[in-house]
């Protein structure tokens, strides 16, 4: 192995060596960036995290009063609940809708229509999140007020509809790829057994593509958790333990975005916002880890 490798690099012309070096650098750079970001965020928050912050209170108290003059409290429980509840509600809408659309585009529509759909879906994915926030702030706000007779439409429901619309294109395009990757021989075999098109889908394609479909759902969820601008504009941005789809909430990401510009660099509040960043990091790390474990578990089966 070693001999082979030495031999192959020795024979490479100079230009190839340069190209290989460049590609190697590109590959390693993503690792460097991830660690670099983590290091920076951690460094900014570390002082207060290890010296002064009550972590128990930070995670379990719903009282977020970072600017109180004589009694500053940094409880993020309401923010964590906000993030998770708005994501969960968004996924309840986006997963069935996205997977359904993926099955339709991949299995039921004509090749011509499929191309049109794919272009439209890509377009949907390219809409900036601030535009979604704008739609939530104006259109969806009015709609929710009228439909539910609510005093105000900037609610968890509003935010999760926006998040659902933003994650659907991701779910559709990854799930569609996963379905397309199932060999045609499976379809042919099932059809020859007298299966209807729908039986082919749920008896053969869904089990065969489950890894990819799961990845689609998790990436959609990750997008929802990390999304900032749309939820900042559409959810009411008010610290509150959510009691239902029509309560207004605030998320972890929106808190950082809204407050980081107004704090003095280096003070407690500034550092707490970075600790929230570490928390978000941890959440996405755990989500990815779960995804990895689940997919590995499926493989071993």
């Amino acid at each position: 192995m070693n001999i082979l490798r030495k031999k192959s690099t020795a024979n490479l012309p100079f230009s190839e060596t340069v190209i290989e070096l460049f590609i190697r650098l590109c590959g390693f750079s993503c690792i460097i960036f991830v660690f670099g970001i983590f290091f920076f965020v951690f460094r900014e928050g570390a002082g207060f995290l290890f010296n002064g912050l009550d972590i128990g209170q930070f995670l379990t108290s719903p009282e977020w009063y970072p600017t109180s003059l004589n009694n500053k409290r940094y409880g993020t429980f309401a923010l964590i609940l906000g993030t998770f509840s708005v994501t969960a509600l968004a996924m309840c809408m986006a997963v069935p809708f996205g997977l359904g659309a993926a099955i339709f585009v991949s299995e039921f529509c004509s090749p011509k229509l499929r191309e049109t759909f794919k272009i439209v879906i890509e377009l949907l994915a390219a809409i900036p999140s601030v535009v979604w926030g704008f739609i939530g702030l104006t259109l969806m706000n009015q709609l929710i007020i009228q439909v539910f007779n609510a005093p105000i439409g900037l609610t968890m429901l509003n935010g999760s509809i926006m998040l659902a619309l933003m994650s659907v294109p991701i779910i559709v395009s990854i799930a569609e790829d996963a379905l397309k990757a199932v060999p045609d021989s499976y379809r042919e075999a099932a059809e020859a057994l007298g299966a209807t098109r729908w039986q082919v889908v749920y008896r053969v394609l869904l089990p065969a593509a489950k890894n990819g479909l799961l990845a689609a759902v998790l990436l959609g969820a990750a997008r929802s958790i990390g999304e900032t601008m749309a939820v900042l504009m559409a959810t009411g941005h008010s610290v509150n333990i959510p009691s239902g789809p029509l309560s207004w909430i605030r998320t972890l990401t929106a808190t950082i975005a809204a407050e980081l510009g107004e704090v003095a660099r280096g003070d407690e509040h500034y550092q707490v916002l970075f600790i929230i960043g570490i928390l978000l990091f941890t959440i996405t790390f755990v989500v990815n880890l779960i995804a990895d474990l689940v997919i590995k578990g499926i493989r071993q089966e």
């Binding site: 021989s185 042919e188 089990p207």
Partner: peptide, 8 residues
């Protein structure tokens, strides 16, 4: 069919 297709 020519190639065996064990469905998953």
């Amino acid at each position: 069919l020519p190639l065996p297709v064990g469905l998953p």
